[in-house]
Simulated scan of single mutants.
Amino acid sequence: MTCQSFEASERRADANTRAVESDESHIALAMKELKNTGWYWGSLTANGAKEILQDATEGTFLLRDSSQRDYLFTISAVTSAASTNGTVQLILTKPLYTSTPSLQHLSRIAINRRTQQIQALPLPNRLKDYLLDYTYNV
């Protein structure tokens, strides 16, 4: 192996390492955000999700770890639609929380539903940052 090909190989290895670290960082950030939603149930089984959702209204959903190796997550939802061609249109309207959300969190959701212009609100910057930190509309 020549010196040049060794250096090129070394650069590729460094780039691959940085890409993996970047992916891991993105996944870690996404997991943190999911845990903050309150509707991420972790390693709940399909049967467990079915039992928890059995009395819920249509559109209620939760997010859990997937039991399939090719996927990170699975959405379990209540739907009344019957599948005729193997597909079902889901309308996810109501997350099922793992525990009762705080009043602070519920207020943030309500404010974010009413306006997309958080920066224009007459609020302290710290509160605006808190409102903007949660980007989901459910």
Rank of each mutant, 00 (worst) to 15 (best):
L123Q: 10
S83T: 12
Y97H: 10
T84F: 13
T87H: 12
E10T: 04
Q104H: 15
Y130I: 11
L62A: 01
L34D: 01
R11C: 02
L72R: 15
V20I: 10
E58T: 15
I52Y: 01
V20D: 05
I27M: 07
A77H: 02
R11F: 04
Y136R: 06
A120M: 11
T98V: 14
M1A: 15
L121K: 08
I91H: 05
D133T: 11
A15F: 08
N137F: 12
N36H: 06
F6Y: 11
K128T: 08
V20A: 10
T37S: 03
S25H: 12
V88F: 06
F73A: 09
L132I: 09
D23H: 10
Q68P: 00
D14L: 13
E24Y: 02
G38H: 00
L131A: 05
N85F: 11
I52V: 09
S107Q: 14
T100S: 13
D14T: 06
Q54M: 13
A13C: 13
D70N: 10
D133C: 08
L29P: 00
S66A: 07
S99L: 04
I52H: 05
S76Q: 02
S25N: 11
I109M: 14
L131M: 09
V138N: 15
T60R: 06
A8V: 03
N125H: 09
Q68T: 07
M31C: 10
T74F: 03
N36G: 12
S67D: 12
S22Y: 13
T57W: 04
T2A: 11
L63H: 01
G38I: 00
F61S: 06
A49Q: 00
E33V: 02
R108C: 10
A30I: 03
H26W: 09
A49K: 00
Q119T: 12
S107D: 14
S67K: 08
K50T: 07
E33Y: 03
L72K: 13
L29Y: 04
R108Y: 06
I109W: 03
L106M: 14
Q119D: 15
N112L: 07
E24I: 03
Q89R: 13
I75Q: 06
G59Y: 05
D70M: 07
E7V: 11
L29A: 11
S66R: 01
F61P: 02
L63P: 00
G38E: 00
S43C: 07
R11Q: 10
I109F: 09
R64C: 05
L53G: 03
T45S: 14
L34A: 01
N137C: 14
Y130P: 01
S67L: 10
L127V: 15
A15T: 09
S43M: 04
L103Q: 06
L127C: 12
G38A: 02
E21K: 12
Y40T: 01
A82Y: 08
T98H: 12
A49H: 00
G42C: 03
T57I: 14
T17I: 14
V78Y: 02
S5Q: 10
A8E: 08
Y134A: 05
M1S: 15
R64Q: 09
Q119S: 14
K94N: 07
W41I: 01
V88I: 15
A77W: 02
L132T: 07
N125M: 13
A30G: 03
E33H: 03
I52M: 09
A81M: 10
A13E: 13
L123I: 14
